[in-house]
Design a protein around this nucleic acid. Structure first.
Length: 210
DNA sequence: TCATTAACACGGG
DNA sequence: CCCGTGTTAATGA
């Protein structure tokens, strides 16, 4: 575990902190599609993502989903930090976008380290900062952009995260993530294909314009 | 005008 | 056949 940890976080944290993480963190491996954090559950651990990608979703009262953002290697989840510090239930759902590996850190340790390690403190603040920025981007996208631009952005995000321009997904699943209907997704995907930005196959979309 | 819903036909696995 | 896809008509915001 130490090797993987050092690869992902060695440039950020000093050896001493890495050793503490190794000592009290627990390593988890999940498969794509697995649910990691459920809405309403109490969160007592902070995830540090080693590899893969996690999708963070919000859910409305009807049970409809809306994608908030993705977490990648080297990221942690600001919403989780929030829940842990505030001792409140989770406001979000976390689902593995790809097969992922991460380390869970107990809240007490994470609080202790904030005082003990400057690098950790920076990491936590930087995470808050980048998460907040991404949230604002997402809000802008939802509030001011048309669905076709939103869809394109979504496709580019997923292509980037998977490290491949090919996205395995049905139109229906995309519609759920973007909180719209499949008819619209199908129509807009067709339009994007006409514009030469993507190519469509069954169950797969290739992003050409990155 | 544009999204949603329902309905239908096409075609690949 | 079943499922994903592409389209259309009706309806409503």
């Amino acid at each position: 575990m130490f090797k993987e940890l050092e690869e992902a976080y060695g440039f950020l944290f000093e050896d001493e902190l890495l050793k503490e993480i190794e000592a009290c963190g627990s390593l988890h491996r999940v498969q794509a599609g697995e649910r990691i954090i459920e809405i309403g559950s109490y969160v007592k651990h902070i995830p540090l993502l080693i590899s893969g990608a996690i999708k963070i979703l919000r859910e409305d009262k009807e049970g409809d989903e809306l994608l908030l953002y993705f977490i990648e290697r080297g990221d942690t989840c600001a919403m989780t930090l929030n829940c842990c510090l505030g001792q409140t239930k989770s406001e979000i759902r976390a689902v593995a976008e790809t097969d992922s590996v991460f380390i869970m850190i107990p809240v007490e340790k994470m609080e202790e380290w904030v005082g003990k390690y400057k690098t950790w403190r920076h990491f936590v603040f930087a995470s808050y900062h980048s998460r907040l920025k991404e949230m604002l981007d997402t809000i802008d996208t939802i509030a001011f952009m048309n669905m076709d631009e939103r869809l394109m952005r979504y496709l580019q995000d997923r292509a980037k995260i998977n490290g491949s321009p090919s996205i395995q997904s049905t139109h229906q699943q995309i519609a759920y993530d973007l909180h719209t209907s499949r008819v619209v997704v199908s129509r807009l995907l067709k339009k994007l294909e006409m514009e030469g930005k993507i190519s469509l196959q069954r169950n797969q979309i290739d992003v050409l314009d990155l």
